[in-house]
Design a protein around this nucleic acid. Sequence first.
DNA 1: TGGTTGACTCGTA
DNA 2: CTACGAGCCAACC
Length: 116
Amino acid sequence: MATHLDDPAARDAAIRAAVRAIPHGQVAGYGEVARRAGLPGRARLVARVLATNPDPGLPWHRVLRSDGRIAFPPGSRGWREQTARLRAEGVRVEAGRVRGQPAAATLDARLWGPEA
DNA sequence: TGGTTGACTCGTA
DNA sequence: CTACGAGCCAACC
């Protein structure tokens, strides 16, 4: 049976919604975003969506690789822009790597905290 | 129809 | 801690 996520457009929308859900000044991994969008294991799909994303308002810079590093080649245009955008939000970035916020932790845990 | 590509991830050295 | 290889998924040619 075809679930709503079988439709490419729907998956695309779900992924972008998950990205928009990342709070200002916080980050999340590709795999984490995919899981939150209801697409576990589709980290590469998330990357594709961001790469082709037409929405300038999407906080794509808050999405990192699972090891906390920026996914662009060091020194590239995107790499520099992502670094700058993150720093502008108060995120500590060193050598293309984000510190203080393990991207491996679940987004839910960060949104709701250890209390909830 | 079949091989290549990439803003990925994980296990191992 | 970093580097490399194999696995994966969907889009492209």
